[in-house]
Each structure stands twice: as C-alpha cells, then as structure tokens.
Design a protein around this nucleic acid. Structure first.
Lengths: 199, 199, 199, 199
DNA sequence: AATGAATGAGCATTCATTCAT
DNA sequence: TATGAATGAATGCTCATTCAT
C-alpha cells in the first residue's frame, strides 16, 4: 500500500471511530463518514470492504489504542500501597476522559450484534498480572481485605468508573447531579477507597 | 379509547420494548415492530405519532415497570442489617434478571440521542429514603463504614450490578467467564459485601 | 334523510369546498376535511361515496351557488348603456370577491382530471341572453363597436376579470403590484371601458 | 458534473416538467417521474434535493425557456403599427401553443403553495420596454386609444390569451365550442384587435 | 345515524453498495 | 489510487377506504 493510501485509510479509521462512537453502528451513515473524512465513499469499501468491516476495525483500533496503567501510575502504586484503590480508580477515570471513544464503543459493542466482537483480539491480561501482584502485597500488609479475590476487587473498580461515565444522563436524574462535577468525583474516589480498605 | 384499541396499543408497546431494547432506536425498524406485534403499521402512528414517540413511551413504560425493593426485601434488610449490602446487591441483580429490558433501554438511552430522556418523569427517589435510613442504622452499628456517604455506597452497588449485566460480552474476554455463572455471581456478591464491611 | 343527516351533509360540503378550493383535489386530504367539518370520516363516505364523489359535488355546488348579474346590476345596465362594460366588469370582479372559491375551483377543474367535469350541469346560458340584448342596444347606439360579436366582447371581459384574480401571484412579479390595490383595479376597469368604447 | 450526469439531470428535468405540468405538485409522484425518465429515483434527490426542489427547478426552467416576441414579430410590429394588437395576440397564442407547459405551470403555481414562487427570478421586464415604445407610437398615430395606459392594454391581451388557453374545459360548456377551433381563434383575434382600436 | 378502529397500498426519502472512468 | 454516477432495497410515514359496534 502506498503512503497516500495508508494516510487515507488512517484518516477514514479515525473519523469513523468518532462517528461510530457517537451514533453507534446503525446510527452512523457511510455517507456521513466519507464526508467527514473528506474522502470518496468508494475508498471506504476499498479499504474496509463494508460498513461492518469498518466498524470492526474501529473497534479493534480503539481497544488497541487504550493503554492501561502507564509506568508512572505503577510506580506510584508501588510506592504507596495504601493508596492503591485510589490510584487505580483515578487511573480508570482518567482513561475514560482520555479515550472518550472507549467506553462508548464498549457500550455499543455490548448492546449491538456481537458479530464484530468475535474478531476482537483477547484483551491484554498481562496488565492485570502486575496489578494483581500489588493487590496481593497490599492485602498482605492489611491495607486491603484479605478475604476478597483480586478479581472481585478490580471488577468493582472497573464497575464504578465505567458506570460513572456511561450512565451520566440517567443517573443525573436519579442521584444528585453534583456527583458529576470535579469535586463530586473526588469525593466518590476518596470514599470508595475508604469503603474498601479494612477499618 | 375502546377496549380493542387499548389492547392493540398495549400490544404494540410491549413488542416495541422488546425490539428497541434489543436493537436500539436506529437498529429497530417500524416495519419490524408492526410485524412482530401483528398489527397494521399505521396503528403505531395512530397511537404513538412517530417512531420517536413510540420509543419515548417504551422508555417510560420500562422505567415505570421497574419496582425496586419490594416489601419482602425491605423486611429482610431490617431484620438483618449485617446483610444489607448482600440483600441490596442481590435485589439489583434480580431486578436485572426480572426486567431484562431495563438496563438495555438504560444503555441505549445513555448512548443515543437524549431527546427522549427529557420527557422521562423524575425517578422515584422515595425508594432511596428508606434504604438510606437502613444504611444509617447499619453504619451506627459498625456494620458499614461510617465515614462513607450513602450516595457513594449505593452508587457502588448500582455500578457493580449494572456493570455485571451490561458488559458481559466484553468482560468475558478480559476477566474469567466463570464470573457470569451462578456460582460466579454468588461469589461476587459475597465478596463485595465482605469488601465493603469494616473488618 | 333525516334533518340531522342533511345538516351533516351540508356541513361536510361547505367545509370541503373551502379545502378543495385551497388545496386542489390531490392536495386536500379526507382526514383534513373530516376534522375541519368536525364529523366522522365515515360520514363522508356515507354521503358522498368517495373523495372523487365529494369533489364532484363540491364543484356542482360552487357552480350553482354563483349567480351572475342580479336585478340591480341589470337595471343599472339598462339605465346607462354607456356604462355597460364598466358595470359588467365590476360585476365580475365583485363576483370573484364574493365567491372566492369560484375561480379556484374553476382553475383546479381546468387543470386536473376532467372526469368530474363531465357530470357538471350545463352552465346557464340564459343569463347571457339578457346581456346580449343590452350589448346589441349599446352597439346600435354607437356606444360599443358594431363590428364585434357579443361573444368576443363578453369573452374579453371574463378574461380580464378571471386573469386579474387567478394570476395575482405571478403577475405581481411581471407587472406592477399596484395593479392589485383598490385604486389599481378601478383604473383597470375605467381604462378597459374606455379602450373598448368607440372613440 | 460529468457529461453523463448532466444528461441524466436534463432528462429528469424535462420529464418532470411534463408531469408536474400535467398533474401539479401534489398530483405528480416522484416514482412516476423517475419511471417516466427511466432513471433511478435516487438521482432525483441527488440532483434536486427534494420533490419541492425539483418542482422549483422545473418552474424556473419553464419560465426561462419562454422567449416572448422574437425579432421577427418585433419587426412586423414596427412595420405595421396598425396591426400591433393582432400581432401581440397572435404571438401570445402561439406562445401557449409552443410552450404548452407554460400556462399550466403558471396556473399550478398560482393555485398551489407559493414557496417555490419566491425563488423565481424577476421576469424579464425588458421585453415590455420595446413593446411599450411601439404602443406609444401607435397611440400617437391614432391607431390605439391614447387615454389608455400601456399596462392596461398589455394586461388585456395577456388576459385574453391566457384565459383562452387555460379555461377551455369549462368555457366549452358555457360559450360555444367553436371558439376553440382554428377559425374561432382567428375570429377572436380579429375582433379583439378591432374592438380595441379607435373607430 | 354515527363513531372509533383497522387496513393495504402508496409516498417521499435514505442507505449501503457497485459501476464506470 | 481515486472519484462521480448509479442502483435497489429499504425506511419512516400517510392516505383513501372499510370494518365493527
């Protein structure tokens, strides 16, 4: 593939991610994507074969683009095991902010037809091994409940951050809207850390 | 409205909830709904004015159909404050099972255009007042962390149950699939309760 | 037919004339007519059999409702033969104002399918016999050109008044819009009378 | 736009003029136009955006296609000022015959919604300036009544020719049908010329 | 006589996809 | 590689008409 072609492809992919993420598979239109990417519609079919193919590639790209827990976060967690929960939560929250497409693509994927899901590569369990180790050490030190498995622990933190980001609209109607301000989030993180730590 | 019309309307609504819940607003087709409900397509427009109107009514119906924490659960919670977390979690999980359309409609609504959301009635905060009281009592007794607000507490439980139900597809790829078996869920509930309780 | 039925029928007819006149056969909707007449749609079918039938009846009613040249006008014409053209023109103009539905129904009929036209009763030539006589007398007196037939004369006057009323929209774009003000019309009538009279 | 596209567009326009002219805006169906033009329905939307857009373009095309008073007619009028009325009338009648769509589109436009009318370009007044001059000269020579304005004069001639062409159907029922034969028209033209000229 | 409920064909418009250059 | 032109099957919605009470 020539350089120009690669660029075109990249361009389409990037644009499509934004649009699929916003409107979902059925809500997004091929014409719309082509126009937004300022390419000829036919290019989409040349590079991605079909709308479904494009969606699949977008999904993969988004998943691959997300890097959990960079070195800085891991170092911080290692230095202050007592703040592990807080660090993880904050990291997850930041991730949603940094990759706004991520949770939306996740949500669409969970809702819509799972045919595109099948081709998704297994998602890096390696990241978790490092975290799991840290969790074990913190539990050892009495900073986290010993009787709770790592899986439950990390599941809860993922749940909190995901739920916080994905259900804003409906939650602002049931719980207080302040929850979704800066201080509201800080309070949530702080109290979650406290709630989980043995007392 | 005559009896026959009421039945037709009800029928359409019920069918539409199922289809919207499965495919979302854009994924669902009016023709499909009409055929599934075995009614003339025009009836949909007669009773709901438009596809959007129908979706809105479906949303309202689903929200209104969901009853949180029946008397039985509340009595159990009152009798055994130590098991509050477990009871609530189990209740939420059961709710998702009993109202399979609920979280999906929630999810679609959070993803798609929020115009239909605006007309949703404020969602029963009253339910929470009773729970809040129970939470206060449990905290008083040292069964739950005192320094944590009720809102953070209930938010976490909602997050866990919602996340568990909404993200199965993608989670089975990152975490262990066993999580989504009966025993897996039991373990999750048990450990969550433990994790939150002061130790 | 009972009294109530007659009233309902009359009501529908009157309303339908207004709507057909405004939107034409295809532009008018049966629902719209029923709603405007505040009757059940089914009544229209009971009394007029079909939309086409209703249109036909409307056409007939409008044609029959129009009475050309009442006694007052005829008397005036007889007294002042010199003003014959002016009197006729003014009468025609007044007719268009008094029966706003008339020319529009005429226009629709001339444009649209002529199936409804066939059933129209022959339109009162009798009226013209009286006029023709007056025309002959005026010509005799040298007040109107002798070499011109009555048919051409009346045709021209009908044309002027019809054209004036039917083509306002497009004419205001080609000729001066003042033509369609009160004084503009007066001037037109005056000058037409003058133009036709021998000088 | 490529040659092929231009042809398709032209083809659609031409066909649509015929159909709109015959059935009016509401009576004409997009399917029908597409089929008659033997093009894919979607092309209509690609080139004209909507049915309303197509109608508008048809209207404009028809108006622009009509050329009043070619050089030949003007020369004839200049050479024989005494026959001015006859020449103009004959020209108008010929115009209706040559552009059968013209008066029908005019009529539809005057009857139906005027939104498309707004975008019509101002209609060539220039043509009238030349005529106006000729009219002035003829009046000077005593061939036409001096006390009558050009506007009234030309209005009358337009009215006669328009009325003659637009109201055939209903007029053949009130006046004699012979009016609409060749000799009938000749007689009308001759007598009109006579009627207007000072005697 | 009158009405609300229901229907099927039709209508303007859109969409994913393919063709031709 | 890239693009404008074209297509056929939807898609949301409407309409004239009939049914059942």
């Amino acid at each position: 593939m020539q350089k120009r072609a690669i660029e075109t492809r990249e361009n389409i992919l990037k644009t499509a991610i934004g649009i699929f993420s916003e409107h979902g598979y059925h809500g997004a239109k091929v014409d719309q994507i082509a126009e937004a990417a300022a390419v000829n519609k036919q290019r989409i079919y040349a590079y991605f074969h079909s709308k479904a193919g494009l969606f699949e590639q977008c999904l993969t790209a988004v998943f691959e683009g997300v890097k959990l827990f960079d070195d800085k976060a891991m170092t911080a967690a290692r230095l202050e095991p007592a703040r592990l929960t807080e660090i993880i939560l904050r990291e997850y929250m930041a991730l949603h902010k940094k990759h706004p497409y991520f949770w939306r693509m996740l949500a669409w994927t969970n809702l819509e037809d799972d045919s595109s899901l099948k081709k998704l590569p297994g998602l890096k369990e390696k990241d978790y091994t490092a975290l799991k180790e840290l969790f074990g050490q913190a539990a050892e030190l009495g900073l986290l409940p010993r009787s709770v498995s790592f899986e439950t622990y990390i599941f809860t933190l993922m749940a909190v951050s995901y739920f916080y980001n994905s259900n804003r609209k409906t939650l602002s109607k049931t719980l207080s809207p302040e929850l979704f301000t800066g201080p509201g989030m800080e309070k949530l993180i702080a109290e979650c850390s406290l709630m989980i730590a043995p007392q």
